[in-house]
């Protein structure tokens, strides 16, 4: 009886001292309690995570990755389309410019041709008129020379008659002609 009391007293004393001075971490009497609740908690967390949370998050992440990949592919496709239409636009622009240049060149060439034709025609006209003028000048000049000869003969005849001579018409003509030549 006394022995039991002593043991109990010592035990409580030791426990009291441990409680007062020691770390609660080294109070082995609480270990089964902690370990039990730890195992329960870990199992609960594990089942919640592995059954519900992790598959759900994995599926959301996969879905998002898929969506992003699809969106990127669509964006790339749209970009290609935009590039293609821009190229088509540029091509059309270049073509239109070329056509416009061609039209301008054609028009210029046509105008040049017409101009050349007109100039040639005008030149020919001018040449024809010049020939005509030359001819009429020649005629006029010839007419003038004849008239001078005639006047010189007449004048010579009159002079001779006035001086009292009579002259042979042939001789006068020959003399005037000789004189005009000289």
């Amino acid at each position: 009886m006394t022995a039991t009391t002593t043991t109990t007293e010592v035990a409580t004393d030791v426990a009291h001292v441990a409680e007062k001075a020691g770390m609660p971490q080294l109070d082995f009497s609480t270990f089964p309690n902690q370990i039990f609740w730890l195992v329960v908690t870990l199992l609960v967390i594990y089942f919640v995570l592995s059954r519900i949370a992790l598959p759900r998050i994995a599926s959301v992440l996969a879905m998002r990755a898929g969506t992003i990949t699809n969106d990127l592919a669509a964006a790339a496709e749209l970009k290609n389309k935009a590039l293609a239409s821009e190229k088509a636009y540029q091509d059309a622009l270049v073509q239109a410019r070329n056509e416009a240049n061609k039209i301008v060149a054609d028009a210029k060439a046509d105008m040049q041709k017409d101009l050349n034709k007109e100039i040639a025609k005008a030149d020919a006209d001018i040449a024809a008129r010049a020939v005509e003028s030359e001819k009429s000048i020649g005629e006029i000049r010839a007419g003038a020379a004849d008239a001078i000869t005639q006047v010189a003969k007449d004048t010579a005849k009159e002079l001779i008659a006035a001086l009292g001579g009579s002259a042979d018409a042939r001789a006068i003509t020959a003399a005037v002609t000789a004189r005009l030549k000289g």
Partner: peptide, 28 residues
Amino acid sequence: IEWYTPTNVTLWMALAALAIVVVFVFGS
């Protein structure tokens, strides 16, 4: 404190589990 006694260990472990459920189950 027996091995099955609900203690402050139980409470704070349960709160941790609850917080995990809130973030990972209700959050998603």
